[in-house]
Amino acid sequence: MGRTLQFEIFRYNPMDPNSKPRMQTYYLEEKENMTLFLALNEIRETLDPSLQFDFVCRAAVCGSCAMVINGRPGLACKTKTKDLPDKITLHPLPVFKLIGDLSVDTGIWFRGVAKKIEAWVHTNKTFDPNALEERMDNELANQIFELDRCIECGCCIAACGTARMREDFLGAATINRIARFYIDPRDERSDQEYYEVIGTDEGVFGCMGLLGCEDVCPRNIPLLDQIGIIRRKMAIASTGGKVGRLFSVFAKKKK
């Protein structure tokens, strides 16, 4: 304890014609168990009330507070200052539209891609309030939950070289979301239908395997493993199933 932390924070208010993008320095005494959530709020309350940033749950479950912390995208709320050097540099996430300072518009971005991939259960059935629920193996429910754990914080998108170069790339979180519906038997879409939403260079074939996504994911989701699975499935679908049958036999053997 007793360290004085030097914060270098990106500042820019697009709504203010006099504002220019710049870095601003703040100094703060470090306290026990300090996180970036506590530090940034202290800066706002005592040093600079105009500082914009987003926190909601402050418990690493809502995905609001992703920012670039000393070069790496991460959740500010669960970043402890004791794990950081004396100088802490904070930038807003790239790729997403800047609202101001450290605040970016991840919500609109994620809704946009969710619409593109139609991220909901597609079914022709109608709900019968008097019937028992359809049975499901608990193991499968757990698998779906594993993929559903993504909190759409945007770290994987900001850490992705492809996403930074190509605006229309769907990104790891989106492909993971597709994987979630893909393994869910309630979603009746066929491989071909999935192919049409994601079998493109903006989709799964755009991924170049840079692994940035997986290495920064605050939920520790094996994103590239999922992309790999979807890539194989979609590649199989692209051949109309001919080459694929051979391939899937091989893939199964591997398992």
């Binding site: 619409k115 593109k116 139609e118 239908e193 192919y195 049409e196 939403v197 079998g199 493109t200 260079d201 989709g203 074939f205 890539r231 979609m234 590649a235 679908a237 692209s238 051949t239 109309g240 080459v243």
Partner: peptide, 21 residues
């Protein structure tokens, strides 16, 4: 009510083939 992009055309499978190649 969502403007879905589910139109199909032949060239669509190209991305997959190119990735294979």
């Amino acid at each position: 009510s969502v403007d879905a992009t589910v139109e199909t055309y032949k060239g669509h499978r190209l991305a997959g083939w190119l990735d294979w190649l």
